[in-house]
Amino acid sequence: MDRAGSSVAPGREHVITLPGRGQTRVWDSPGPPGAATLVLLHGVTLTAALNWSGVIPALRRRFRVLTLDLPGHGDGLPGSPPYRLEDCADDVAGIAAELGIDRLIPVGYSMGGLVAQLMWRRHRELTAGLVLCCTARNVSGSPWERSAALMLPGVTAAAAWIPAVHTLGADVVGAGLLDRGTEPMARHWALAQMRRTRLLDAMAAVQAVCGFTSHEWIGSVDVPTSVVITRHDRVVPPRRQWKLAAAVPGCVVHEIDGDHGVFLGAPARFTAVLLRACAAAAGKDAPSRSASSA
Rank of each mutant, 00 (worst) to 15 (best):
W161T: 14
A164M: 09
L168M: 13
D171H: 08
D171F: 09
V173M: 14
G176Q: 12
L178D: 01
R180K: 11
E183W: 08
P184G: 08
M185H: 11
H188F: 11
H188V: 08
H188S: 14
A190P: 05
Q193V: 07
R195C: 12
R195A: 14
T197P: 05
T197K: 09
L199C: 04
L199I: 08
D201L: 00
D201T: 10
A202V: 09
A202L: 01
M203E: 10
M203V: 09
A205N: 03
V206P: 05
A208L: 08
G211C: 02
F212N: 02
F212V: 00
F212K: 03
S214M: 06
S214F: 08
H215A: 15
E216F: 03
G219A: 09
S220F: 00
T225M: 00
S226F: 06
V227K: 03
V228K: 01
I229M: 07
I229P: 03
I229L: 15
T230H: 11
R231C: 13
H232K: 07
V236H: 02
P237W: 02
P237F: 06
P238E: 06
R239V: 14
R239D: 15
R240S: 12
R240F: 02
Q241V: 04
L244E: 07
L244K: 04
A246Q: 12
V248W: 10
V248N: 03
P249D: 06
P249M: 12
G250S: 10
G250D: 10
G250H: 05
C251A: 03
V253Y: 14
H254K: 12
I256P: 05
D257V: 08
D259H: 00
P267S: 07
P267H: 02
P267A: 05
P267K: 01
A268H: 07
F270C: 05
